[in-house]
Design a protein around this nucleic acid. Structure first.
Length: 415
RNA sequence: CGGGACGGAGUAUGCCGGUAGUACGCCUGCUUUGGGAGCAGGUAGAUAGGGUUCGAUUCCCUACGUCCCGACCA
């Protein structure tokens, strides 16, 4: 894409009313636009990143046999009343139409997913069933904060699984956990599975996937030697205690952000919707339900918190808005200008996802924008460039290398 | 929801009870062109309501908005 056609512009100053790093950088660089507290529009660069994150979790979900849906976000009030959440869940947005009919905005989708599963999962042969979607969620938070990390409208992948037995749920939980670890890792994050409370809707323990960051809002204790990790809200362990799991190290305390979670919902929702399947003996049974959340927009926020420096964002390659940034510094040299244009065309033909800064600006401004936007690699064409020697810079550490035009077209801009 | 701070051109910000100033941006022109250029000209602003005052953008009150701390976080 030609940067001259990108309608967003960068800003030199961070907005005065945003303190969090993710909001400051994402707004300055033109990835998002704030509509109001806790609600952001995603602009072309932001959509590209979000789509990459969604693609990563989508691939993982499909690989473990989950099937993608697009559930409604405008909900009838009946299922919410049926489960008691209409009056019992205070973050639920409720809407009244002009004919005084009541609706809810989806803050989670058990009330939609369970009746759908009920319609099709009639026999134990239809189980397990895993259905998910990636979409917007709405929660009437008392206080939105930390930029895109805690909003009233946000993006989430939510998976609902239905099992004939508790053992099968336990098996599937481990399958999803591995998929989540892979997904967060591919997003450039190290997630820890943390024991937490199940909240007000589940008696059982839940698990949260936490990424260490000061921008988070949970405190956890964790062990460096083994994988033991717990939310302090449910843990009797404290910083400095010997790890109860491995006994090898003392526990550390840290601030973390919850980027994913797992709830063992038991049979609560099947019972609320009278959802039974017929088992091998012809008996009606309630399935066991699991809910697995993966915050896509929050993940994007945490990535910015973790991958940025004084000059701007440093996107991991897996989620970067473009693979490479082609920066034209040919100035008034028309031969060099032709050289860049030809290189851009050839890169596109080679299938490279390239942002081409073809704007008539000075070098400093282009470099500053490039640093801020944070594309992992930068190809710079200036006076010194020749077909045998083209400068390529790696954003994360500033490493410079010189490669030939032919090598670049074969992918040598990636090093 | 409790507490605190803030609210002015597109963005950021200084001073101030009495012509709303500066920088960047944006528009015109010329010069410039490897780390946010220079000159000249131009464009554009006080959240709302009430109070104090001869006079309020400034002080006071209320509402609304935004951020921060806490609580909350199906």
């Amino acid at each position: 894409m030609r940067q001259s056609h990108l309608f967003t512009k960068t800003r030199k100053e961070a907005p005065a009313d945003e303190v969090s790093k993710n909001a400051q950088l994402l707004i300055r660089a033109g990835f998002v636009h704030k509509e109001m507290a806790g609600v952001y529009s995603y602009l072309p660069l932001g959509v590209r990143v979000l789509s990459k994150i969604e693609g990563i979790i989508r691939r993982e979900m499909n690989a473990i046999g989950a099937q993608e849906n697009r559930f409604a976000t405008l909900h009838p009030s009946e299922p919410w009343k049926q489960t008691g959440a209409w009056d019992g869940v205070d973050v639920l947005f409720k809407i009244m139409s002009r004919t005084e009919k009541e609706y809810a905005l989806g803050q989670s989708e058990e009330e939609i997913a369970t009746p759908i599963a009920k319609e099709y999962a009639l026999s134990y042969k239809d189980l397990p069933l895993a259905i998910y979607q990636i979409g917007q969620k709405y929660r009437d938070e008392l206080r939105a904060k930390s930029g895109i990390m805690r909003g009233r409208e946000f993006g989430m992948k939510d998976l609902y699984s239905f099992h004939a037995t508790q053992e099968d749920f336990d098996r599937y939980y481990r399958v999803v956990q591995e998929a989540y670890f892979r997904a967060f890792s591919e997003c450039g994050l190290i997630a820890k599975a943390t024991e937490a409370s199940g909240g007000s809707f589940s008696e059982k323990l839940s698990y949260e996937f936490m990424v260490l960051t000061d921008a988070g809002e949970d405190d956890i204790v964790y062990c460096d030697t083994c994988s033991h990790c717990a939310n302090v809200e449910v843990s009797s362990e404290a910083e400095g205690d010997l790890c109860t799991k491995c006994g090898q190290s003392t526990l550390k305390k840290a601030r973390a952000s919850e980027v994913g979670n797992v709830f063992d919902l038991g049979q609560k929702y099947p019972k609320a919707f009278d959802f039974t399947f017929t088992d091998a003996h012809g008996e009606a049974q309630y399935p066991i339900v699991g809910c697995f959340g993966f915050g896509t927009t929050r993940t994007m926020g945490v990535i910015v918190e973790k991958h940025a420096d004084a000059a701007g964002i440093v996107w991991p390659e897996s989620v970067a808005p473009f693979a490479v940034h082609l920066v034209d510094l040919s100035g008034s040299d028309s031969d060099k200008k032709e050289f860049v244009e030809a290189l851009y065309s050839d890169l596109l033909r080679a299938g490279t996802d390239v942002l081409y800064d073809d704007r008539d600006l000075r070098a400093g401004e282009k470099f500053a924008d490039s640093d801020l936007i944070g594309i992992p690699f930068r190809i710079v064409i200036g006076k010194q460039s020749t077909p045998d020697s083209i400068e390529v810079v790696r954003r994360k550490d500033g490493t410079v290398t010189k490669v030939s035009r032919d090598a670049i077209l074969k992918g040598a801009w990636h090093f």
